[in-house]
Design a protein around this nucleic acid. Structure first.
Length: 407
DNA sequence: AATGCGTGGAT
DNA sequence: TATCCAAGCAT
């Protein structure tokens, strides 16, 4: 596959990079353990997420779920709560599903087997190589964005790294570069170089351990590589959000909703909201009245909840990878159904689909059959303001809640 | 192959 | 301010 002269060049690259890494590597918490589970958790958190962001999440997560068994046995709502704010929440649900599978199929241990480990949920080509090389020093490539940038520059590869085919090629190259017996350190060295020296913009070529033979730099292309097609702009969406405060027996409570089992922010909690039929129009009193009427109508239709929106509280904006939400948040009064006693179960504890969890007198979490109480369907729940922090909300709603609860 | 899926830091 | 994009995976 590679000529002898090329192999010599590759070996020089790997040895220099490895030597550099062993001197300059950062002291990261997951580098202080050899526990394959702990390393796996770190790699999942690090998917599309920066090191500085991950560190506190990893510490909390490992403290609460120190073993795959502990994670497997936890309520999903608690796992999501610890993931709150980290994004890409399917990672958390997949990680727990994989931990359960690990306990069922592999006695709770990360298998030192590529096919077996890669078969777990949320474990793709990168995570497979990263965990198996770092934990077991298996000679598997771990090609992430950093590695593709480093390799595309050093070997002057002009392939579009946004295309899956590019990653496959990079994996072959990366695997061939692994020095005998040092797969874990070498894979981390490639990523470390990309994260700290061979950065996307203004790379620090003068301190790079492999600058002398970097074809990209020698060609003056260190800034223009790698080649990557641009992502599409997020699609705008306008929504009306309801801040619904209960009265009477529901005084001091807010109505929240659990999102669907799949898709965006799956199974996370949120304030009820509805999508605008049309785009934005001129602001003003008349327009707001129309928006409030629309919100009430849609909540009645979609959630069977009657509310009376009476004021625009705040506007909020939130950008996802593929969506740009423009939100109008309205204060609403709750209108209990007439002719029957509306006494929904006081929600507490962590969310489990289809069940309401209530703390029993001993403090343990016990599941209760769902009651079709007025104003509280399967995914709706009246929660005391002070207990909102028991539920996992995506950041966009955390920001809104923080603004509104303090007023 | 192309798209859906979060969030925050750097420039 | 706007843009990029980060230790990717599922479908």
């Amino acid at each position: 596959m590679f000529a002898e002269a090329t192999k010599e060049r590759m070996s020089a690259f790997s040895e220099r990079l490895l030597a550099w890494y062993r001197i300059h590597k950062r002291d990261l918490p997951w580098r202080r353990t050899r526990d394959p589970y702990a390393i796996w958790v770190s790699e999942v958190m690090l998917q599309q997420t920066r090191v500085d962001t991950v560190i506190p999440y990893w510490r909390r997560f490992m403290e609460r779920f120190p073993t795959a068994k502990a994670l497997a046995e936890a309520p999903e709502g608690e796992v999501l709560k610890l993931w709150e704010g980290l994004g890409y929440y399917s990672r958390a649900r997949n990680l727990q599903a994989a931990a359960r599978e690990l306990c069922d199929r592999f006695d709770g241990r990360v298998p030192a087997d590529r096919e077996a480990f890669a078969s777990l949920k949320g474990v793709g080509p990168y995570t497979t190589g990263a965990v198996l090389s770092i934990a077991y020093d298996m000679p598997e490539p771990a090609v992430d964005g950093n590695v593709m940038r480093v390799l595309s520059r050093h070997f002057r590869i002009h392939e579009d790294i946004a295309k899956p085919a590019a990653r496959v090629r990079m994996e072959k190259l990366a695997k061939a570069l692994i020095p005998e017996g040092s797969a874990g350190d070498f894979n981390q060295a490639l990523m470390e170089l990309g994260a700290t020296v061979c950065t996307p913009k203004s790379p620090y070529c003068l301190v790079c351990p492999v600058m002398e033979h970097c074809a990209g730099r020698l060609a003056g292309e260190e800034e223009s590589l790698p080649i990557k097609t641009k992502a599409k702009a997020p699609r705008p969406e306008h929504r009306s959000v309801a801040w619904i405060e209960g009265e009477g027996d529901l005084a001091g409570r807010i109505l929240i909703r659990q999102r669907p089992d799949s898709g965006l922010l799956a199974r996370m909690w949120e304030l009820p909201h509805v999508l605008w039929d049309d785009g934005p129009e001129a602001d003003g009193g008349a327009a707001e009245a129309g928006r409030m009427a629309d919100l009430a109508a849609k909540l009645a239709d979609e959630e069977k909840v009657t509310v009376r929106p009476y004021a625009l509280a705040i506007k909020a904006e939130h950008v996802f990878s593929h969506l740009h939400w423009h939100l109008n948040v309205y204060r609403c009064a709750y209108e209990p159904p007439s002719g029957r006693k509306a006494q929904p179960q006081a929600g507490t504890g962590f969310g489990v689909p289809g069940l309401l969890l209530a703390a029993d007198p001993s403090g343990a979490y016990a599941a209760q059959a769902e009651t079709a109480a007025a104003g509280e369907s399967g995914r709706l729940r009246w929660v005391p303001l002070a207990e909102l922090d028991r539920y996992a909300f995506p950041n966009v709603f955390l920001k809104i809640i923080r603004e509104l609860r303090g007023q």
